[in-house]
């Protein structure tokens, strides 16, 4: 299944604003028709990367290619893409209906009936100025355009800021149902990692402008474990392993260890009275991105 030409190909991509490096030498490829999560802390470079992919910003070095071509000023490529950004500022006086009227002029696959259905699902008021809508309603508008646009490459940047839990699950369910019917490439950045982790097939993690992880969601799940017990036992168990995080409480310690444990490891841990617990997807990303100095080598350590 992994023999297809990549839909997105990024090589040594860097972007520097004056003296601030927003992206540093990022390289990866994405297969077509997968749902990929772009994760990382605020300021990690997620939005910058997405803007490079959609020709909204220009690389300082390296290249970003979509369908094998440079997206900058490339109408043929851009027409296949839809970028829904949390930072979209709607023009003054624009109402939701103006946005939904304009969208089909630019997205050839636009499904008007689907858009109407979504307006109902998200209870979006159409005749109020977009700038006066709540954060959540503005997010809903973006989500509707992104889903109904059915662009072969759809990019969501923090698509559901301000959406309540009900609306978020409406988004997940609608996305999954629509994606199952009409597979397309979806790149999604979010803070709510645990909520979306099951939807993702692939994960990219950015930290301080560097690509920390580029691997399948399934290989990431269970690729780290939390080991707890007496500090001395824990440390001797952890010796020679990649420790992502360490907490102590009195004489007790908990360490997050990267890499899958073998059954021999489990037996050894049980013998040493250590408790082993799985590390959640979100916790793993948090541990990976809270290290004081990012370690690019981590990617290869966690990778199976």
């Amino acid at each position: 299944m992994n023999t297809q030409t990549p839909v997105i190909q990024v090589d040594g991509l860097s972007r520097t604003y004056r003296d601030v490096a927003a992206l540093k030498d990022v390289s990866f490829t994405l297969e077509p028709n997968i749902i990929c999560g772009l994760l990382g802390r605020n300021g990690a470079g997620k939005t910058t990367l997405m803007r490079m992919l959609t020709g909204q910003d220009f690389p300082s070095a390296g290249s970003a290619r979509v369908f094998g071509q440079d997206p900058v000023e490339n109408s043929a490529v851009l027409q296949q893409m839809c970028f829904i950004s949390e930072s979209t500022r709607y023009p003054e006086g624009f109402q939701a209906r103006h946005v939904l009227t304009g969208a089909p002029w630019f997205y050839a696959n636009w499904d008007a009936a689907f858009a109407d259905e979504l307006v109902g699902k998200f209870r979006l008021p159409l005749k109020r100025e977009v700038r006066k809508l709540s954060r959540g309603q503005q997010s809903a508008l973006g989500v509707i355009v992104g889903l109904a646009g059915r662009a072969p490459v759809t990019i969501f940047d923090e698509p559901y800021l301000g959406l309540d839990a009900v609306a978020r699950h409406t988004f997940y369910d609608t996305l999954l149902a629509d994606y199952a019917e009409q597979p397309r490439t979806i790149l999604l950045s979010t803070h709510l990692i645990d909520e979306v982790s099951n939807l993702l097939e692939h994960v990219l993690v950015l930290d301080e402008g560097r690509l920390l992880l580029d691997q399948s969601a399934d290989s990431l799940r269970g690729s780290a474990s939390a080991v707890a017990g007496r500090a001395g036992d824990v440390d001797s168990f952890a010796e020679g392993r990649q420790v992502l995080h360490r907490d102590t409480l009195g004489g007790l310690a908990t360490v997050t260890i990267s890499g899958r444990l073998t059954s021999a490891d489990r037996v050894a841990a049980a013998a040493a009275n250590l408790e082993i617990a799985p590390v959640s997807f979100q916790q793993l990303i948090v541990d990976l991105t809270t290290q004081s100095t990012p370690q690019p080598s981590l990617a290869s350590v966690v990778y199976e």
Binding site: D173, Y179, A180, L199, L200, E201, A217
Partner: peptide, 17 residues
């Protein structure tokens, strides 16, 4: 596969796997 994916709210490719 798609019904599994919808029911468990997981990626269809994962369900397929």
């Amino acid at each position: 596969t798609n019904e599994f994916a919808m029911f468990y709210r997981i990626n269809p490719a994962t369900a397929g796997k």
